[in-house]
Design a protein around this nucleic acid. Structure first.
Length: 123
DNA sequence: TCATTGATTGTTGAT
DNA sequence: ATCAACAATCAATGA
């Protein structure tokens, strides 16, 4: 409800009227601004990641032989899909709070940039 | 690097 | 000029 995301597939507008007109495939990010940013707020882990932290331990206990995150990741995704929203909401809640802080940090970060770019702290 | 999914951000297109 | 949507990249882990 507050955030725009949260897996809320809403009907589009422009897309409905103009599906893909103006052929312009923006393949790849035109301007990777977040590459050389001095102190750009990094993205906080998503609910899935938080769940993974907990799942990792559990999975490791049941599968001490499995150390590859690749396999755990698949297992995580599999279970994540079977998990009830009530269980997931718990991780969503954590991630949501983190995002709130991240958003705030991003706003200030943008302001700084707008103000006059951030001085690269000469260490 | 790989895989998982979610989330964010940026750019562009259209009105 | 502003809204809306898309699209791609990134986030951590652990060998």
């Amino acid at each position: 409800m507050k955030t725009r995301s949260q897996t809320a597939p809403k009907p589009l507008k422009t897309v409905a009227l103009a599906p893909r007109s103006s052929g312009s495939k923006r393949s790849s990010r035109p301007k990777p601004a977040g590459k050389g940013d001095p102190r750009a707020p990094k993205k906080p882990p998503t609910a899935f990641f938080y769940f993974m932290e907990d799942f990792r331990k559990t999975y490791k206990q049941e599968n001490p032989s499995v150390k590859s995150m690749q396999e755990i990741g698949k297992a995580c995704g599999g279970k994540w899909n079977t998990m009830a929203f009530e269980e997931k909401v718990k991780y969503y809640d954590i991630a949501t709070e983190k995002r709130a802080e991240f958003e705030k940090a991003m706003i200030e970060y943008n302001k700084k940039k707008e103000s006059g770019e951030i001085s690269e702290e000469s260490d």
